[in-house]
Design a protein around this nucleic acid. Structure first.
Lengths: 331, 331
DNA sequence: CTGAAAGCGCTTACAG
DNA sequence: CTGAAAGCGCTTACAG
């Protein structure tokens, strides 16, 4: 099966390759209706599929973007990825998927790979401060936008969530319900979002004179981690009426442990998560959580990236989304 | 930031492009140690990243594969995708992600796109019989392998699960526990795997003279579908002691509805799912299910594909995995 | 309204 | 041990 090329079509149509190329690229103002139609007809008959690799080499554009994230298996990331792919596809772009498990070296490796493939831009959910990766991207002049995970750096484009405010909303909701002994489970220390979320809790609790370090626990954003930390909480905290997990996945683990120990939810203890991942509605009772507009965020990130790629003017560097409290069954 | 190319390096090293190229491709048996090292050193200093698009054009190989699946947001698919990406990456390949929502037209569109990008092969989780897509792939001679969703067609490579046997195991387990009124919830009708799973149930029930059409319900593999069908079951089936959902996600929806109606699980009703998606362990009680070796399947599929791409001999056309019953809390 | 030619950055026989 | 040259399939000024 010999591949059909632009030259084959040109020959059959009795025109030059340039003419054929122009027809396919809609730069055909200057081409007569007849030749255009002849070309299109032949292309159709031969089942012609253009070779976009050749095109990329000539134009220096690939119409592919990369998406670098920790783990597609984590529902938060798969939902973001879905949004990005939808938006990218609708704008004529392909998405190449890269899982890093938060490993800095894997990020760098992927970035080099993507650059070598002439990727037009990258959406990056960083596993840490990822300094070298950011440096690489800047050095090579590859447009990129961060999502979800904030990195301190000027000249950065990104779409983020107002983590601090989201947590404040949740804590105040619990406070209004008369809860006083609110345990907080932090996220991985190296992430900026973990710090922001914790600060939202700390400030609010302090404001009401309720803050105590004994109520704060270190988590890691995983299900297992959520289970383990909850065992610790049960063992070590004399009195608690709520647990605020700084992401949903840890909350799922925690709820299992609490139920096993005979706690009633929300009777004995109120639970709040963060993210509003789709499975929040899979469990019973359904999870009360601080919802990030995940799909919107992914979509905007992709949109922003493509505007950067197209060198549009006046693109906002950073977009903030306001999360909101969704009250369901656990609080 | 001018991009550095092989010519720049050649010039600086005082050799030809061919020599430089050979060094990078490890075809350098014939190149003196000194020149090799000189070239490598210069490349490093200039932070050279090869242009693999140019390479692809010259070699007709892209070291990218496509993965076409219904929805990355569905945990079953995200787990498969993860396995594929891991394996692909370890073998030097990139993965481009395509979500089809089971739409035949989107599948075709993506396939054309992927072909035009000179993708080396495709992993395809089809949304139906996808005749035209399969035809396209064959016509253009693109290696592809199917996973999970079987399609009747000779000349097809794929990795599948022994759906029939898995269901038989589950039904017999329930039977052994003394259950007799086992409701079965089918998957989407157009899928071959739905038929296989249903047949496993039907044959086993008939063998023991327990089959009745009143116990069979139509589902759609979604959470909402699982909820809806379960409402129906509660309304219409006088007596049932178990429900066998033909995938986990529907089981999650069903369990919520049953709990809300006051049923005890597994006290009043036993539940079995199919897949053993990671979230099976997120809920309480944990889901008893027929486990597919999802990660293994994805990995093998990718491996098989790459062997096809490399035109290896004696590759097995079809791999079957045996699912197995995992007994947890719901049955 | 259309064509000839150069170029994108590589690889690959071939020659010496 | 290394180089010159053609070619992969497109696009893009430029010329007419």
């Amino acid at each position: 099966m010999k591949k059909v090329t632009i030259s084959d079509i040109a020959k059959l149509a009795g025109v030059s390759k340039a003419t054929v190329s122009m027809v396919f690229n809609n730069k055909d103002e200057n081409i007569s209706k007849e030749t255009r139609e002849r070309i299109l007809k032949i292309a159709k008959e031969l089942n012609y599929i253009p070779n976009s690799v050749a095109r990329s080499l000539a134009t220096n554009r690939s119409f592919s973007i990369g998406i670098i994230l920790p783990d597609i298996t984590n529902p938060f990331f798969s939902e973001i990825a879905r949004a990005i792919e939808d938006e990218a596809n609708s704008l004529g772009y392909n998405v190449v998927l890269c899982n890093t498990d938060n490993k800095i070296e894997k990020e760098e490796e992927y970035i080099k790979l993507l650059i070598s493939k002439l990727i037009d831009g990258i959406i990056f959910i960083a596993g840490g401060d990822s300094k070298k990766s950011i440096f690489l991207l800047k050095e090579k002049g590859i447009p990129f936008v961060l999502v979800d995970r904030y990195i301190e750096d000027k000249d950065i484009f990104g779409v983020f969530c107002k983590n601090y405010e989201g947590i404040v909303d949740g804590v105040e909701y619990l406070l209004n319900k008369g809860k006083r002994n609110i345990v907080f489970v932090k996220g991985p220390q190296k992430l900026e979002i973990s710090k922001q979320r914790f600060l939202g809790y700390k400030d609010t609790m302090q404001k009401y004179g309720l803050y105590s370090e004994e109520l704060v626990f270190q988590g890691d954003f995983t299900l297992e981690g959520g289970k383990k930390v909850t065992e610790d909480i049960i063992k070590n905290v004399k009195k608690f009426d709520s647990i605020f997990y700084s992401n949903d996945v840890m909350a799922f683990g925690g709820i299992k442990v609490l139920l096993k120990h005979g706690y009633k939810i929300p009777g004995d203890v109120n639970i709040i998560g963060f993210d509003d991942v789709q499975i929040s509605k899979f469990i019973e009772p359904e999870l009360t959580t601080i919802a990030q507009p995940i799909y919107e965020m992914g979509k905007s990130a992709c949109n922003l990236l493509i505007r950067l790629i197209n060198k549009e003017e006046n693109v906002e560097k950073i977009l903030y989304f306001r999360p909101k409290l969704i009250i369901r069954g656990t609080a």
